[in-house]
């Protein structure tokens, strides 16, 4: 998922098209090929390298159905998918969130309020399963508590 992208390699892909005439579209294709999505940091990098406002890069990337721009919601819910959380039952919790929000992991709700993502160990394994909403970690949440937590946003 997005979080495991290393910005370095996005930079590297884009750098190859720096001096290519009309290099923006080929660069988008190359990023898409590698990641199946145009991540946010790629938009910024493309803007810097091609000296085009980032809004316009976004306009171009969304114009073509081929490219999926990683459009995150206002609140990003990230589930730790590393082993300790996995064993502690993260999967059921994820399924419950997916049902509540009506989206799959990796997607964003239609109203743009929530995005569901996976991430790697957040270093709080003693409290597994762990998820975060924006910067805030949540521990040991039961399925019954989900509606109340979502209502806070």
């Amino acid at each position: 998922m997005v979080d495991s992208y290393t910005n370095v390699s996005v930079d590297k892909i884009i750098a190859e098209f720096k001096d290519v005439k009309s290099g923006l579209l080929p660069a988008l294709h190359a990023i898409d090929e590698k990641y199946k999505v145009i991540p946010e940091e790629a938009l910024v990098k493309l803007s810097q390298v091609f000296n085009i406002p980032v809004s316009q890069i976004y306009g171009v990337a969304t114009f073509y159905a081929k490219f999926a721009v990683n459009q995150r919601g206002k609140n990003v819910i990230r589930f730790c998918e590393s082993a300790p959380c996995h064993i502690a039952g993260a999967a059921e919790l994820v399924a419950a969130f997916e049902k509540q929000l009506g989206i799959k992991a990796g997607e964003t709700t239609l109203d743009g309020k929530f995005t569901l993502e996976f991430c790697q160990c957040v270093g709080m394994c003693q409290e597994a399963p762990v998820f975060t909403i924006n910067q805030q970690p949540y521990f040991n949440v039961s399925i019954e508590e989900i509606p109340e937590i979502l209502a806070r946003f």
Partner: peptide, 20 residues
């Protein structure tokens, strides 16, 4: 300042800052 752009195409087109 180039804050706005059109995003998507056809019926789904919208106007917003980058990444909505």
């Amino acid at each position: 300042a180039a804050v706005y752009s059109k995003y998507n195409r056809g019926f789904k087109v919208g106007v917003a800052p980058v990444l909505n």
